[in-house]
Amino acid sequence: MSINENSKGPQAAPKKTLAQRMKPYLGFYLMFLPVFIFVLIVYYWPMLGVRYAFYSYKLRSIQWIGLGNFVKLFAEKEFWSSFVNTLILSVGKLLLNTFVAVVISVFLNEMLNLFCKKFVQTIIYLPHFMSWAVVAAIFTLFLSTSSTGFVNETLKSWGWIEQSIDFLHSKTLWRPIFYMIDLWKETGWGTVVFFATLSGIDPGLYEAAELDGATRLQKIRYVTLPALSNTIIIVLILNLAKVLNIFEPVFVLYNTRVLEVSDVISTYIYRKTFLTAIPDYGYTTAVGLFKSLVGMVLMLASDYASKRIRGRGIM
């Protein structure tokens, strides 16, 4: 008798077929079935439309053109400009938002007056619940060069400027203004995750640091920030995967004079699809498909980075 034969035990039980393994849970599978069908129809069936990336599709005329749309796409200066802008705007706002959210979270964590802390939290969360359309309307009015523009009229009345500054139409100012508006709207909400992490730090660590004679700044440096570092990395990795999806904040704030620095892939697709009298859906599908492929690469890169840093992936 061989060792193998002796050591069979429970591992040696005959392998069950898929049907046999499913049978005890048949009710659950049946209950899941409609949801599965729903997901297939709503999420995956429309994906069959990616085939149009290889067609010219205008009104009801659909013609196979192979890689023609991609050749046209890669030759378009506007496309590459929008691609670069997407990365600059998305990554820029991701880094800025994360940094400022961390700083605010730490400050809030240090705030001893509970009423004051709650009040500040409420105030900075509020802009997140305003739609981008409303935010854009407010800031457009606020920064207008017309006599209704609050900022320019105030600066003029203080004698700081003579001519109005065209904040939203200036190629040099548009991106800083965009980052600033995005910070105003989203940073408060971005603090929620960090604040949750901070509230989970063992108070014993702070007490021990205090016994060791640590100052307040040293406690932040040696206790708070190390505790936050893992969360910061997770937030960055998770958001990195969706940097190409930026649309709404740009769409409501950009204009033709700053297209070179503001046009992103999604707004490029929007204009080509919805502002063209008879659009070529094949071309815009190709742009969308390319965007999805790059997004997938970023997602895989994020997953890899997550595995390396945290020991587990995000997918």
Binding site: L26, G27, F28, L30, M31, L33, P34, V35, I37, F38
Partner: peptide, 15 residues
Amino acid sequence: RLFSLTACAAMALSL
């Protein structure tokens, strides 16, 4: 099992 089958039927019918 009876409950899950009923729920399943209800969802399928709604679809």
